[in-house]
Amino acid sequence: MRIAVTIFLTDRTPSPVRLAHELERRGFHGLYLPEHTHIPVSRETPAPMGGDLPEQYGRTLDPLVALGQAAAVTERLALGTGITLVAQHDPIDLAKGVATLDHLSGGRFTLGIGYGWNREEAADHGVEWSTRRALVRDRMALMRALWAPEPMPYDGEFGSVRASSAHPKPARAPRDLGAGRALHGPRTLLGGSAGPKLFAHIAEFTDGWMPIGGRGLTESLPVLRGAWEEAGRDPKALQVVPYAIHPSRGKLDHYAELGIEEVVAQLPAADEPEVLRALDGLAEFL
Rank of each mutant, 00 (worst) to 15 (best):
A71I: 14
G68I: 13
A99Y: 12
G97Y: 01
P91K: 08
R59T: 13
D52K: 08
L77N: 01
R59C: 10
F109M: 00
F109E: 00
V98F: 08
G97A: 14
A78Q: 12
H103C: 04
I92C: 02
L104R: 01
A95C: 12
G68Y: 04
I83Y: 09
L61V: 05
P91D: 15
E75W: 08
G82C: 13
G51S: 05
E55H: 03
E75I: 02
L61K: 05
G80T: 10
L61R: 11
G68S: 15
T60G: 11
A70G: 09
T74I: 03
G58Q: 04
V86I: 15
G58F: 09
L104N: 00
L104W: 03
L61A: 08
A78L: 12
G97E: 07
T110Q: 11
A71C: 13
G97P: 01
D52R: 10
R59I: 12
D90G: 13
G58R: 10
V73Q: 09
E55M: 04
K96P: 04
G97F: 02
T74L: 02
F109L: 10
A99I: 12
V65Y: 04
G106M: 07
D90M: 11
P91L: 13
Q88P: 00
G107E: 05
Q69M: 15
T74A: 04
P54K: 04
L77P: 03
I83L: 14
D52L: 12
Q56Y: 14
A66C: 09
T110S: 14
L61C: 03
Q69P: 01
L79D: 11
L85A: 06
A87L: 14
H89W: 15
R108P: 12
A70F: 02
I92H: 00
I92V: 14
T60C: 15
A78Y: 01
L77V: 01
L101T: 11
P91C: 13
G68W: 04
D93E: 08
Q69V: 10
G58P: 09
T100H: 03
L104Y: 01
L85M: 11
T60V: 15
A99Q: 13
R76V: 09
D90Q: 15
E55P: 03
L79E: 11
Q88T: 10
A66M: 12
G80A: 13
G106F: 05
Q88I: 00
L79N: 07
I92A: 04
Q56H: 13
I92W: 00
A72W: 14
